[in-house]
Design a binder for these strands. Structure first.
Lengths: 263, 263
DNA sequence: CGATCTGTTGACACTGCTCAATAGGAGTGG
DNA sequence: CCACTCCTATTGAGCAGTGTCAACAGATCG
């Protein structure tokens, strides 16, 4: 069925998956690769920005056949850990994740934040084991896409192959942008860029670009941006004083996007 | 158009190829796919660490058929520029490159250094245009691999498909390591890690791991590591004083690898 | 409703940046 | 071949942006 490895608590929580299916879809009997013929990609709100993007209906239905099922991950739980054998990619259907790299020596670092419509796990291909931990920032649901099946389908469906390559490439570009941020930008610029990035991603998904809730802590943000949590906090306060935004704990309201961008 | 000579002695003669293309021109005018039938991958010194890795002889020969040819790039010239339409991946046959990201605002940043056996250009897939400049650090030669042909072949040859995916993934992992370095490490740790990384890559390629010439300037190194060129210079001097290495301009001799690693 | 996690703010120290002066090397042209 | 220039590297001095440490306040959750 799903990844055969067990969670840290020793049990893979089948129940929570069944519950997920209960919302409007038939639950898949445990123990088999679930692939009910009713299209799921075609009815998914994220179909236009995830792996299924730019596929025709027939192709999307075939992609459905390699989606093994859904997996629900509660806030704070790990979808996978660094060192776990790599088997599947995960398309986030609902919720959000952070990925955490833990070098042998030194502090662990947040390497990315991902939300519904994003796919994660691509870092695991090259070593056949995951390179980071993926931790849910809120209760989340992912589509489990066994990689060998996806590869097989990519050998048949050219647009899917291209889409997969684009996803790999987009992750490379995203990271190289982040490297630029970490190399040259001041703390203020980093925080501003981060907020604008989150804003743009909410906008893409049809949510408000100016009013949103950050799902991660100041420490997570600081780790991602290469500054301390105190600096993140101070910078947000400063932006608020300057009238660029209002901040109330995790709730952010952006007031002057242009001014933020000018940082 | 392309130099059709074979490598009789296993030593690649840069000179004879460099006359084949005019400086900086894309050697791939439409329709002119030059692919002489004499195997090149199978005789290439880099075949075990490049795209051809883990292919059987027959498969490698087929890969040869999609390699459009070689292109020579003189020191300081650009193989491609940010914004150029993406058509091909480039496997470095000889020489080395740096990739430079130029954000709309802010300083340009070195996002990577690449040497013989590495492939570059994967950042271009997602937008169908290159995301950075690739600049030769010395006179270099690359294999030009048109991406649509490579994709077509990947639909037929499973190990090649897997190899391509691993290369994408390895680039993601490399960048996420670099992000960790840029997020948490002190200037000394960055320089030490950089030297050890270069050392390991020379070793992989059969060169000395302790004595080598850096092909890039202090400014390039600083940009890559997110510190100033002065800090790079000072740190190298300090390491020399401490007996960890000797440095003479671009020539480095590592004396105490363990001590460097302990930083 | 207490315990714990998360966020805010202040004071101070320190790493690494900026600016500057100088020296060494590489390439060019006479 | 040498002189000239430009690029690169080294080293110093002073300063500023962030990190560190600490105290406290506000959330969150069992």
């Amino acid at each position: 069925m799903f990844d055969s490895r067990t969670e840290s608590d020793g049990v893979y929580d089948v129940q929570s998956v069944s519950v997920t299916f209960a919302r409007g879809e038939d639950p898949t009997p445990a123990g088999q690769v679930s692939c009910d013929s009713r299209a799921r990609c075609t009815s998914c709100m994220m179909r236009n920005i995830c792996m299924a993007a730019s596929l025709e209906a027939g192709e999307m239905a075939r992609l459905d056949t390699v989606v093994q099922g859904w997996r629900s991950v509660k806030q704070g739980e790990r979808l996978y850990r660094a060192g776990d054998p790599f088997r599947s990619l995960y398309a986030i259907r609902a919720g959000s994740f952070k990925t955490v790299v833990s070098p042998e020596r030194g502090k662990e670092t947040i390497s990315g934040f991902y939300m519904a419509g994003d796919s994660i796990g691509m870092d695991g291909v090259c070593q056949e084991s995951h390179n980071c931990d993926a931790i849910a920032l809120e209760d989340s649901v992912v589509c489990v896409i066994p990689f060998h099946l996806l590869e097989a389908l990519c050998r048949e469906i050219k647009p899917l192959q291209r889409q997969l390559h684009k996803m790999f490439s987009a992750e490379i570009v995203r990271e190289s942008r982040q490297m630029t941020l970490l190399s040259n930008m001041s703390a203020e610029q980093r925080v501003a860029a981060f907020l604008l990035n989150v804003s743009a991603r909410y906008r893409e998904r049809g949510y408000s670009a100016t009013s949103f809730v950050l799902r991660m802590t100041r420490e997570d943000i600081g780790s991602f941006l290469g500054v301390t949590l105190e600096t993140v906090s101070r910078t947000l306060s400063k932006f608020q004083q300057e009238g660029l935004l209002t901040v109330q704990g995790k709730s952010i309201e952006l007031i002057n996007l242009d001014a933020l961008d000018a940082r």
